[in-house]
Design a protein around this nucleic acid. Structure first.
Lengths: 246, 246
DNA sequence: CGTTGCGTTGAATAAGGTCAAATAGAGTGG
DNA sequence: CCACTCTATTTGACCTTATTCAACGCAACG
């Protein structure tokens, strides 16, 4: 065998990634790290994986080995219930990290399914732990990422526990909008990658209810909806819905 | 000032704690650690704090400095909403760790309120991070604890998103029962430390609904209820309720 | 022994869910 | 490029569930 690994063709789905030159570094794990520290991260985040729409990065029950930073595309986390229904527990976009559910039992607790053709950076967990034993700021940053996930989940619990259907949808749209802005996209106009059913599952509503409320918001001039294309026309109107529990 | 710190009287609420001799060590942070490693933990978990019923270990907005391992007693995590309502996001019992919500922003995101006179072990976070840079298994264990919290929250999201009122109550009782068993208490008979309103808040139901369903379960012979005293009479009956979404 | 907070219960109501039918797009194969 | 299929979405009518509002009981406590 000739020793030419560097000339290995690139037509596999394993590509070289570098955090230091990644446009998402201010949203992702490298956030707040120095140049040198990010280079340490580059050493461990060595491969990317392409995930086609409908495929999974991992499935519930899979052995846990890595975290995944979303580089492009859009994902849902979901669990298939005994009765076959697909319960959505989150939506994830570029710069976010998925897979942390697997750490506790060494097996993943849910699926991470691509809602469009996507790409993730593979972060081998053992190497991340090793690096974060060496680099204090990386350790801190990783802990913050996990904690942020906990706080985010608690936010969803509050949404599900206290809000009525219209508030949930309004909160959902505002949240998406915010996250798009942070990634340099328009806050007012975006494309939903998920179906009404997935939105409903995530928000604890039926798809018909989601559809009806979108229509209602449209009639009230708050948003424009055309299938998956959303245009927010009156942000303050949506914000005003939050906290009006009756 | 005489140098006699060792003779300092014990009538403060700061007491010496040792994980190595703690009866909860198999549920708590020391889980799975060796004797030597637990001793390293002893060095940093140096103080206990007593929290009286109704008082908070920390409040939303407080600067984050420590995690807290519950040594005895019972807590709720909660957020006070703008309109003054108290939204409960979790119940916590001995051996569980609270405060991880504070890591992400260096401020706590919720309150941790004692539902009865309680005691917590203070785990200064900077020192925990330091120790977990040195002790690989401690690092791993801490990450598992955080991940478990993420998985737990997702379980609650599924409960709120998919279950009807009776299922929620059944799941709630079974969950409490399980956690009591793990702590050496009876699985079948226990005392609720929280009010119907707090249960309802946690489960996304009104207190009247909680009360009604307890009565219904009692009529059906599934449980015995007398105020806050609960006796589970027919575990399988409760389990059978889960997954019957209609 | 009245007060106060918590829990239970009933009746009326509203919010969402269920069922069903019609429509609109996206993708496919000819 | 068109017809066809399949899936997603919208909308209406009706029904179930949980909430709301209200009254009352109970236990703890000063």
């Amino acid at each position: 065998m000739p020793a030419q690994p560097a000339l290995k063709p690139l037509n596999t789905d394993q590509l070289k990634t570098v955090c230091s030159s990644c446009s998402l570094r201010e949203l992702c794990l490298p956030m707040g790290l120095s140049e040198t520290e990010i280079e340490r991260l580059d050493q461990l985040v060595s491969t990317r994986r392409r995930i086609k729409r409908g495929e999974n990065v991992y499935r519930a029950g899979d052995p846990f080995a890595s975290l995944y930073a979303i580089r492009s595309g859009f994902f849902k986390s979901n669990v298939i219930l005994e009765d076959g229904r697909d319960q959505v527990t989150g939506f994830h976009m570029p710069g976010e990290i998925v897979g942390m559910d697997g750490i506790s039992t060494d097996r993943h607790a849910c699926n991470a399914t691509a809602l469009e053709d996507s790409e993730v950076c593979v972060i081998p967990f053992a190497r991340l732990e090793e690096a974060s034993r060496q680099v204090r700021s990386l350790q801190r940053q990783f802990h913050k990422v996990m904690s942020r996930e906990i706080v985010r989940d608690q936010g969803v619990m509050m949404l599900l526990g206290t809000m009525r259907a219209e508030e949930r949808l309004a909160a959902f749209l505002l949240n998406l909008s915010q996250r798009f802005v942070a990634r340099g996209y328009s806050p007012a106009e975006f494309h939903l990658r998920m179906t009404r059913e997935e939105i409903g599952s995530y928000l604890g509503l039926k798809l018909e209810t989601v559809s009806r409320i979108f229509s209602k918001f449209q009639d009230e001039g708050l948003i424009g909806v055309q299938q998956k294309h959303i245009r927010i026309l009156h942000v303050d109107g949506l914000k005003a819905m939050l906290g009006h529990h009756t």
